[in-house]
Amino acid sequence: MVKIGVLALQGAVREHAKMLESEGTTEAIIVKKAEQLDELDGLVLPGGESTTMRRLIDLYGFREPLQKFADSGKPIFGTCAGLILMARQIVGEEEGHLALMDMTVERNAFGRQKESFETELDMKGVAEDLLAVFIRAPLISEVGASVEVLGTHRDEIVAARQDQFLACSFHPELTDDHRFHHYFVEMVKNTKAALV
């Protein structure tokens, strides 16, 4: 059994928790206070509004505990706004938020809501036809040498992994396709086994 938290400051928390619980070997924890991070084996940063989340992260003293959690080697999975929080650089802004992954992201890169879409993606090591929902989504415009690109849409990078960090610009939690969450849960299990 692994415990995976979902940061619950704002956004699609319930959907991630449901996806994680359906794995059977996972207990999903709704994380509203920083001290809850201590008991976790992995963490999901959900979709929502990244500016709102960043403000609440600062306000409730989450920044340092999140950084510490990341440094401990435990896996983190960011979707959409979560990906923005994890990027080292954000186009048009001075610095990244948590700056966990060596990549640059561009916010709202596909346009406004009427341009939002769903499609199937070939996701390396996950699935050849993963259902992906893009909502006012960001994209990854640049990655460092240590970042592995997992998936692209029209030649733009939309999913990547760097060691224990996993991020995508779409919403696997809004579909019935569990394969990306399964991939992350396996990451958490392997890390837990290795850290013991």
């Binding site: 619950a8 400051l9 704002q10 956004g11 699609a12 928390v13 319930r14 959907e15 979709g47 929502g48 509004e49 709102t52 959409c80 706004a81 809501q113 009427k114 341009e115 939002s116 879409f117 769903e118 499609t119 199937e120 929902v133 893009f134 909502i135 006012r136 849409h153 919403h171 809004l174 579909t175």
Partner: peptide
């Protein structure tokens, strides 16, 4: 193939607003 304006995309947008003002 990319579909815009599906129920999932439209309802999903509102899901992202949850817990917010």
């Amino acid at each position: 193939m990319a579909d815009t304006g599906t129920d999932r995309v439209k309802r999903g947008m509102a899901e992202m607003q949850k817990g917010g003002v």
